[in-house]
C-alpha cells in the first residue's frame, strides 16, 4: 500500500518537477495559520481573561473590582478547596492508575494469549465488551449508575435484597463515607476500555518475531509481558496515563449527575467547585482563581509527563 501511491503517478509529471530542489521549510508555516487564529480566539484570549478575572471581585455583570491576590489567599484557607483536591488524587487512582494496570494485563492477555489460542475474533469480541462503557457519554454513564444505585428503587439494592444480602444494601451515593468510593468504582468501570483498545492497537505494531523468539526460548507469559509487551508499548502507556490523569483532574459530568459534589462536600472536585462559583454563586473572581489553580496543576502534570517521556525515549 505504501509503495503503490507514488508508483501510480503518471510518468509525464516527472519531467515537470524542478529536480531534487532543496526543501523550503518556510512555506510549512502556512499550514499552521488557521489553527493559530482559532486558538487565539478560543484558548489563549479566554485563558488570559480568566487569569485576569481571578485577581478581581466580579459578579459577572458590571465592572470587575481589582482585589489583587485576595481570591488566592481566601482559596488556600478554604477547606472545601483542599478537600476537592484530595478527592481529585483519589480519582486519578480510579481513572488513570487502576485502568492502566488492568488494561495492560487485559490487552496482553487478549493479544498474546486469547488471540493466539482462540482466534482474533474472540479477542476482539472481548475487547469490544470491555470498551463498551467508554462509548457512553460520561453524563449518560452517570444516569445509568444513578438509576442502578438509587436508594429506594435502584437495581443494585434490590438485587442484594433478592439474594438475601440485605445487610450489604447501602445508600451508595447518599452516604458521605461511601459516596466517593462509589464514584471511584463507577469511573474504573467507565474508563477501563480506553487503555485496553489503545494498548491492543499498540501491540499490533510489535514485531511478532519478538514473541516467537521468546516463546521458543521458553519465556513464561509473565516474562513476555514484562520484557516485551510493556517496553514495546511504553509510548502508549505514557499517552494513556497522561490523558487519563488529566481527565481525572477535570472530572465534572459524573459529579454533576451523580452527587452534585455532595453529600456535604464528600465528592466535591475543583471543576465542580469552580462551576458552582461561576454560575450559582456569581463569584466569578473566586471561580476563576480555582480554575487558574487547576490549569496550573494540569500544565505541571503535563510537563512532568513530557519530560519523563522524553527521557524514556533517549
Amino acid at each position: 500500500m505504501a509503495v503503490q501511491a507514488p508508483a501510480a503517478r503518471p510518468a509525464a509529471t516527472r519531467e515537470a518537477g524542478p529536480g531534487r530542489a532543496a526543501p523550503r521549510r518556510g512555506g510549512y508555516w502556512l499550514y499552521l495559520l488557521p489553527s493559530a487564529v482559532l486558538f487565539l480566539a478560543v484558548i489563549v484570549v479566554p485563558f488570559a481573561m480568566n487569569v485576569g478575572a481571578s485577581f478581581t471581585r466580579w459578579t459577572g455583570v458590571g465592572t470587575p473590582r481589582w482585589t489583587g491576590l485576595d481570591n488566592y489567599t481566601r482559596l488556600f484557607a478554604d477547606e472545601t478547596f483542599w478537600a476537592s483536591f484530595r478527592h481529585n488524587v483519589l480519582l486519578i487512582v480510579a481513572m488513570a492508575i487502576v485502568p492502566t494496570i488492568i488494561g495492560l494485563v487485559l490487552a496482553a492477555a487478549l493479544f498474546d494469549y486469547i488471540g493466539k489460542r482462540f482466534g482474533a475474533r474472540t479477542a476482539s469480541a472481548l475487547r469490544a465488551a470491555y470498551y463498551l462503557p467508554q462509548v457512553l457519554p460520561v453524563a449518560v454513564a452517570g444516569v445509568v449508575w444513578g438509576w442502578m444505585l438509587h436508594p429506594s428503587y435502584g437495581a443494585l439494592n434490590q438485587v442484594l435484597q433478592a439474594v438475601g444480602l440485605d445487610g450489604l444494601a447501602r445508600n451508595w451515593l447518599g452516604d458521605p463515607d461511601l459516596a466517593l468510593a462509589t464514584v471511584m468504582a463507577i469511573m474504573v468501570w467507565f474508563q477501563l476500555g480506553y487503555p485496553v483498545v489503545i494498548f491492543m492497537a499498540g501491540l499490533q505494531r510489535v514485531d511478532p518475531a519478538l514473541y516467537e523468539a521468546a516463546e521458543i526460548d521458553g519465556a513464561s507469559w509473565w516474562r513476555r509481558f514484562w520484557h516485551i509487551t510493556v517496553p514495546q508499548i511504553r509510548q502508549e502507556i505514557f499517552v494513556v496515563l497522561l490523558t487519563c490523569t488529566i481527565a481525572a483532574l477535570k472530572v465534572f459530568g459524573p459529579i454533576f449527575v451523580l452527587t452534585g459534589g455532595g453529600p456535604g462536600r464528600a465528592t466535591m472536585v475543583p471543576s465542580y467547585f469552580s462551576y458552582v462559583n461561576f454560575f450559582e454563586k456569581a463569584n466569578v473572581g473566586y471561580g476563576s482563581a480555582i480554575a487558574t489553580v487547576l490549569a496550573i496543576i494540569i500544565v505541571i502534570v503535563t510537563a512532568f509527563f513530557l519530560k519523563f517521556q522524553d527521557r524514556g525515549e533517549r
Binding site: 521549510r25 512555506g27 510549512y28 508555516w29 499550514y31 499552521l32 486558538f39 478560543v42 484558548i43 484570549v45 479566554p46 485563558f47 481573561m49 480568566n50 478575572a53 459577572g60 488529566i246 483532574l249 477535570k250 465534572f252 475543583p270 471543576s271 469552580s274 462551576y275 461561576f278 466569578v284 471561580g287 476563576s288 480555582i290 480554575a291 487558574t292 487547576l294 490549569a295 494540569i298 500544565v299 503535563t302 513530557l306
Partner: peptide, 28 residues
Amino acid sequence: GRVKGRLWILVVFLVANTMPQEALAYPL
C-alpha cells in the same frame, strides 16, 4: 515540514488540549 520551533508549538498544542475547560468557560 519540521518547521522551526516545532517542539514548542507541539507543547502549546498539548497545553491547549489539556487546558481545563473550567479555565476557559466563563470568558467563553
